[in-house]
Design a protein around this nucleic acid. Structure first.
Lengths: 259, 259
DNA sequence: CGATTACTTGACACCGGTCAAAGCCGGTGG
DNA sequence: CCACCGGCTTTGACCGGTGTCAAGTAATCG
């Protein structure tokens, strides 16, 4: 399978074949589920590219609870730093089994310096991350639980579709309700109730650990989700027109088959 | 007064005098309070540097309510874009009378391309913005109203101190409770109650529109505020050792005198 | 197949939203 | 200089969304 980073950047800005070749970091190393990819508060001089699996950025709160401040999907960097020895204000943990490729700060600089188009693509993906953060903030601060959940599912579907891991109506989401709760600022119990509510409204269905969206437009309307905010350039309906089933697994285990 | 952007970047990374000179964008144009600096969803090919005053990034929600997703203080850019014709996913509005200097995309590119140190400083300030966003997310999603408010006040104090607009114990904050509510995801009524609660605990005092912090350590402990997350490099106690009173006004009106 | 982890369900309490009304300014015009 | 006025702040009553606690059921893994 093609490197998901290449998919994403090509999707966002378009990439020349020469630049695509520069982005091949090899197969990556495995990280087990629930293990740190980067420890909270550590000083690092590298970044890690997520190749497969789902991970998260998190912060530990004084209360002992974990706040998830972002999900990392295949093709995302844990952090983008161009200066050595940066102290992180967050940690990165694998939520499922993951494959990650470590990229040194120097290598990243060389990449960005070597091709202005690549530099622009990396910058654009940073902008998109910030847009996602803003959308999270707006949603978490102003919406009730069910809308928050719906919005998150819309966002994940769209980002997964961008790297070929979701079609128009379903995607794998092998993470726990506890983890959704940490991301949405809800309790586990309430996440459960919210999911049931969305199922009652037939806005989503869940089988195995696959989310099925019977009517994307209805879900996006319910969530007040603007599909455009993830797209600096074009506002095409990502994934809505994809034929076929969900693509190979998030977990690095390609043995998944839709139910 | 020295350009607050220069103060900030010099503080973050250190800047050579030659680079400092490049950052002088002149006096800027005035923007009245409650007016847009950048309209929500507009396509722009420039950024604006806030020279004085307080502004915010906001998103309009489906409910009609406004969500404030970040405060802009003197020395902050409304947006940092290197590619033309980017569609914004947010708006920027002046909360107080402001002065802003418009910088074209091309000029920004020239700045970043002309000095690697400057490019690094701009990148670092972007990183700091992201750290602030993450802290907001964690706080809003996991803390009760009084801690959220306390955390926001700690953050604003520290960022203002960085550009010389707060000393160790007080700073001007001429914005309304409604605006704080939009930023914290609370109702106006509750913001009022929360502020009263913090006053009862003598964690803050307010006179005129100046916030006075009798004991910063106590407030930061209450808020579970980590003063380090705003500082990629050094972890000095910004502002804690500043002598003298609050510096010239945020509002472009220098007639402020401490009560 | 036993044990741990995830999910579900119900009862109850509380934080914070909403509504409504009453003070409190700060500016404006007579 | 004073009366008016609109926006901001403050207060109280009431209600709903969510958290917490606790128990029970289903799934997963060694």
């Amino acid at each position: 399978m093609q490197n998901p980073l290449i998919r994403k950047l090509d999707h966002l800005c378009g990439l020349e074949p020469a630049d695509q070749a520069r982005l091949d970091f090899g197969p990556g190393r495995p990280v087990a589920a629930h293990h740190d990819i980067l420890a909270d508060g550590s000083q690092v001089s590298h970044t890690s590219l997520l190749i497969s699996g789902i991970a998260c950025r998190y912060k530990m709160m004084g209360s002992g609870r974990r706040a998830i401040v972002g999900f990392l999907l295949p093709g995302d960097f844990t952090n983008l730093l161009f200066a050595d020895r940066q102290k992180l204000d967050f940690g990165v943990a694998a939520l499922t089994p993951c494959e990650v490729a470590d990229v040194s700060c120097a290598a990243l600089q060389a990449l960005a310096g070597g091709s202005s188009q690549l530099a622009r693509a990396l910058w654009t993906s940073t902008q998109m991350e910030q847009a996602v953060q803003r959308a999270w903030l707006a949603n978490i601060s102003q919406c009730t639980g069910d809308k928050r959940m719906a919005h998150l599912l819309c966002e994940l579907r769209q980002r997964l579709a961008m790297v070929g891991l979701a079609d128009g109506e379903s995607f794998r989401l092998p993470i726990t309700q506890q983890e959704l709760a940490d991301a949405l600022g809800l309790s586990t119990v309430h996440v459960n109730r919210v999911l049931q509510h969305l199922k009652e409204l037939d806005l989503i269905r869940m089988m195995d650990r696959t989310v099925i969206i019977p009517d994307l437009d209805r879900l996006e309307a319910f969530a007040d989700f603007d599909p455009g905010y993830l797209y600096p350039q074009k506002s095409s309906d990502i994934g809505k027109a994809f034929p076929g089933a969900v693509r190979a697994a998030h977990t690095g285990n390609p043995a998944f088959t839709a139910a």
